[in-house]
Design a binder for these strands. Structure first.
Lengths: 219, 219
DNA sequence: CCCTAATCGATAAAATTTTACCCTTTAAAG
DNA sequence: CTTTAAAGGGTAAAATTTTATCGATTAGGG
């Protein structure tokens, strides 16, 4: 009944293609079509979609509007959640300025930092707030999600503080594996992990080419 | 023989813990210990490590130095690869300024943008270069990896250009699924994907709590 | 109105990944 | 020197995820 994580990870890509198709004036899209756009297996796309319960029409495909709404709903992106950022460094600032989160139902409402010289400065449309004001801000604005963009060394301390303030979901950009109580959810977005996969795939690919080269030599 | 992708994704975390342990003066670390730090199953950690061929000592664990070296090597992080960034917006600038890539064997050597007003400006320690100079730069410096941080609408065009210039690995931060020839590797780092998982997990967690609450009510 | 081909949907097979089990090794304590 | 318990390692089972197969449906052309 619950949707597999790999499927959930593909959902945002589906949404992108669905929006594209919609902009092009289409009303229906087939799994085959979606798969082509994303370099996936059509059967897999159908399976993913079937987990939403939505049915398609043979020879036509799926109703774009219906599918979009359903996926958006499953992801919980249909009603906006307020979030704050802790860490006004390069990455934190970049995220604060990024305006694409709206379509994920995420609204950044404040950014915090502990460095005295940063407090009061402007980052995008925000004024950097002090860590002392964090607790009160979370309580008064009923913030459930926090984005951590502090250096690894401070990440756990910041995390502990956030949990104590009642934060329930943490999006962690620090290269550090945070420990949290059972009731809190952490998702780490790690550049290293992503790059690791690229490194290995590239290494393999380059080795393949070498193999081909030597194969050719042998002919 | 080839190492599973999920294992590769865990390797960077292992490296982090290994470095921590090393800094604390340890020489050996057990799979149990690693697993605890990362919230993983010890058996899984052993399995991951076994794919490197490294053997541990019962009652002691694995040689931290040996393991570090091996994982670093498998990831190809032991010799530095030069890379360039295309797109000097918020994210591109943040990445250009980030100094943590050195430990991934990645060295950003230049940043490019097509906006005339950005060319010549300074981003971190780089001067933004024009797209016209891209081809020559790649050829002269034998660049194999490029980081794409342009808006989604331009990503495919930039990608095509990079491929034509001989780039073999692309790290794509644009929310767009790029089409490339067989010989090129693309890895997408997508904030949306990461956030999708957080959203769903958090939603589920909050629902669980609700369930518990209502269960309690029934007692 | 009938055929054709594209597509869906359900079930099952295959592949991959995680976890369990059990035996061996060995540091450390007694 | 012996016992104990904390690992490691190999094999196999379980779980998850992906892919294949095949029949059913239906838009569109003839």
């Amino acid at each position: 009944m619950s949707i597999p994580i790999p499927t959930i990870k593909r959902f945002p890509s589906y949404l992108r293609i669905l929006n594209q198709a919609k902009e092009m004036g289409k009303t229906y899209i087939s799994a085959t079509n979606l798969a082509e756009e994303l370099g996936l297996n059509p059967i897999q796309v159908r399976k993913d979609i079937s987990s939403t319960g939505i049915e398609g029409k043979p020879k036509i495909g799926f109703d774009i509007e219906e599918l979009t709404q359903y996926i958006t709903h499953v992801l919980g992106w249909d009603n906006t959640t307020d979030a704050l950022i802790v860490g006004a460094g390069n990455l934190g600032s970049a995220i604060a300025r990024y305006d694409g989160f709206a379509s994920y139902g995420l609204k950044i409402v404040a950014i915090f930092d502990k460095a005295a010289e940063k407090i009061g400065t402007t980052v995008g449309s925000f004024t950097v707030k002090s860590m002392e004001s964090l607790n009160r801000f979370i309580a008064e604005n009923r913030i459930a999600i926090a984005v951590i963009t502090v250096p690894a060394a401070q990440a756990q301390a910041v995390c502990d503080l956030l949990v104590k303030c009642g934060i329930r979901g943490i999006w962690n950009f620090a290269p550090k594996d945070l420990k949290v109580p059972e009731s809190v959810v952490v998702q780490r977005t790690d550049l290293a992990t992503s790059f690791a996969v690229l490194s290995v795939k590239l290494g393999k690919k380059l080795a393949e080419i070498d193999d081909l080269d030597s194969d050719e030599d042998m002919i």
